[in-house]
Design a protein around this nucleic acid. Structure first.
Lengths: 195, 195, 195, 195
DNA sequence: CATGAATGAGTTTTCATTCAT
DNA sequence: GATGAATGAAAACTCATTCAT
């Protein structure tokens, strides 16, 4: 029981640090965030962070991978590979907006750090994997004449851009992400890409 | 001619600092950029920056206002206020993409720094002015049943998001912004918003 | 004992910084003293000073208040308010010269920094409190015809001046502050002010 | 005439620099004063100072010697070496207070810098010369049983201290140096030293 | 294991001095 | 000679990281 307790506590601290880091990195960026503040917000000593993460870069990479994995899993779990593109887009949009609404900070954090110089290869690979999935989708949808016959990367970029635009408008306080708004946004997005 | 030479050289130095700062702030962000690097890239001494800008914050604000003004002017000069929304959208899109293609770094810089805590009131006001113009456009276009009857802020957010998505795809190397691509993007964007 | 040890050591560091700052500020003034030198003389890292004092100004103010408080306490503790002025002057003179002999550097530091632009309100108030006490003494002594019927501020200024003159002569090496000399000085001072 | 004009102008600039430096050094000290401010207040270019003074140290030394010479001349010109000490003291006191009243800033500057590390040998020698004259006076006055049989350096220190105390009280705004006050001060001072 | 005081390398910023005009 | 823009060495201060407790 002691061991369990310790393990739990150990995990708790790691989670607390990741949670604190998420908030600070999302709001102030990597260089704008100072480690003692992460520690304070996590309720641990400054030195404790270094028991769980080798240094600041390792922390941001762990955080990135943590949320990027959740993001990819959210989008991909039980993905209806065989369904028609239109339906698959709906699934994608619903899952993406659900994530965005549940974890707005995590989405902001990911979006802010995608091409940061302090991300390592593994983190970058994870990102590229997601992009690639998007392009594959648009290649197939185009072949089926469902979406416009434009470069897949263009389609992916614009779809992604709309999602990001939505989140930013939400975060600057100008747009509440109600179900109605999310459906309207989906309609816009689909209109943008459908043939 | 000597006088002209002096004046030019003086301007050149300020301009060189702004150009260097643009590149570094766009790539590494505000906190990730160190002043001696700005100086070195500008080809001036470290102290020289402080003859032209009171401190790092003043520099980033001057840079923001500089490019935001050019951006707003690019979009608004001789704007055909009386033309039908569809045509005005074309004008907006063409001007925006021209700016994006001519000054991709400036666009990235602006996009990266909206809402940053080190921007002062004047800089923020300039940004809000642009957003407001967007919303006004969509309000009117909606009244004329040209665009979807959705919240103007949603429409603005998604339009803006597509532009940003385009730029990011371009900068990560996956998408060249040829005339054809830009026209395709315009088509997507218009389809997204039209009723 | 361990706890005591820690507390002591913590206090020791702050104390060491104050001691180093006293010596340097007294000898070289505020602007002539550089923080790394304070750190080195205190035997701590440069950054450590900033754990105890917010900045250089906070350090000089803390130091000023520290010694000014000791000075005021030295003069005022168990002050014989009811004794005749002549005796009270003796008490004042003895206490002042004792302080001057025990802490010559502190006296020099205080004298050098009265009215400095970097002293804050609290520090200045402490100084004014001492001056006021001096004037009150001379007002009363004058009413009793013990001292000259001259402006109290003049009397205070000259008494204070003699003390300062004594310390300066001592510090430039020309005058040792033996008991005999201090008594002679007291005699001079009393002759100067008595009616 | 051109040459004369130039020479005059040259002198004017040097004077202007010395005047500006006096005010700034007296108020803010050596390290607290920055050269461009001296130049601005003198109404000359920053580089111009270096045509007249090799560097900041040379400037402060020139200024010190300038005023110390005037001070010594003021006290010593037509000095009544043969008059009785009491009268000589009167002369000294009157001349000193006249200087103090005419050039309070210069007196403050001299007093502030007497033992500064950036003063060179020549400047220090000038100071020592004045001190020596004071001691000689008290030695003789003591031999004649006019003043107290105390160490001359003590007498000098206290006399000097009273003068400085007077000036400081005046500069902090608490004491106006009217003729009456100066005479009262003289009386105090003489009472302090006379046997 | 956990801590947080301590560190010093690295940052922003200042300023005495130079030198092209 | 006079200037003041330019400089870079040195200042104040910050912060990622360590290590004694």
């Amino acid at each position: 029981m002691e061991t369990v307790g310790q393990v739990t506590e150990r995990s708790d601290k790691r989670e607390a640090i990741l949670a604190a880091a998420l908030e600070l990195f999302a709001h102030k960026g990597f260089y704008g965030t100072v480690m003692p503040e992460v520690a304070e917000r996590a309720g641990v000593g400054a030195g404790t962070i270094y028991r769980y993460f080798e240094n600041k870069e390792a922390l941001v990479n762990a955080l990135y991978r943590h949320w990027k994995s959740i993001w990819l899993e959210t989008l991909m779990k039980n993905y209806p590979h065989e369904a028609p593109p239109e339906e698959r887009f709906k699934v994608f949009w619903n899952r993406a907006t659900r994530f965005v609404r549940d974890y707005p900070l995590a989405f902001k954090f990911l979006e802010l750090h995608h091409h940061a110089p302090y991300l390592d290869e593994a983190s970058r690979a994870l990102h590229e994997k997601g992009c690639e999935a998007g392009r594959v989708f648009f290649e197939e949808a185009e072949r089926l004449r469902i979406t416009k016959a434009y470069p897949p990367e263009l389609m992916r970029a614009m779809t992604w851009g709309m999602l990001v635009g939505l989140v930013k408008a939400n975060q600057t306080g100008g747009l509440e992400l109600t179900d109605a708004v999310l459906q309207q946004a989906e309609r816009c997005c689909w209109d943008a890409i459908r043939s």
